[in-house]
């Protein structure tokens, strides 16, 4: 356990995790590791810490290292602070073929932020991701839980301007 001892898994966070635990056989709490990490991350400004992973481990009765394994294997878990809006930018072939890479460069320019970084005001960060499975709408990105498809410079910038 790292230094922070504040109990994060309580109240609503706990209830949400418990709902997932109920989806699996009783002796398989570990199955809820992925949803638990996602929920904890969502409620912690979008990223995980060692302390949070330890708490998940404890809550699910897993070895901490087993949780670290999961948390570092899957691409959607963040281990560094992210922007209030994390722009998950698809980097794969169909988006690439339809100008995704050029558009990302424009996005970086507009936000004044490089991929992998957080804007100075903490509002945006850009993360390169692999195929988002919506190639018919390429180029696309995912912000929060929403997909934005058929992006053009215009539609993308408009979208960003509308985000609070």
């Amino acid at each position: 356990m790292s230094s922070s001892t504040e109990n994060f898994i309580q109240g609503e966070v706990k209830e949400r995790i418990d709902r997932w635990i109920a989806e699996y056989p009783e002796d398989q709490r570990q199955s809820a590791c992925m949803p638990a990490l996602r929920i904890v991350q969502e409620c912690h400004d979008g990223y995980l810490t060692t302390d949070l992973m330890d708490q998940v481990a404890e809550y699910l009765g897993m070895a901490p290292i087993a949780v670290y394994e999961v948390a570092t294997f899957y691409g959607n878990y963040n281990h560094q602070p992210v922007g209030k809006y994390q722009i998950n930018w698809c980097n794969s072939i169909s988006c690439y073929l339809r100008g995704g890479e050029e558009l990302r460069e424009k996005l970086e320019e507009k936000l004044g932020v490089k991929t992998g970084e957080v804007s100075a005001d903490g509002k945006f960060s850009i993360k390169k991701v692999e195929c988002l499975g919506a190639c018919g709408g390429a180029p696309i990105c995912k912000i929060g839980k929403d997909y934005h498809e058929n992006l053009t410079e215009e539609s993308l910038f408009k979208l960003l301007d509308e985000l609070e």
Binding site: E23, M34, P35, Y74, G75, N76, Y77, V129, E130, C131
Partner: peptide, 10 residues
């Protein structure tokens, strides 16, 4: 039926 959600791993 139950759902398990992935987390970004092809």
């Amino acid at each position: 039926l139950h759902v398990h959600l992935g987390a970004g791993a092809y």
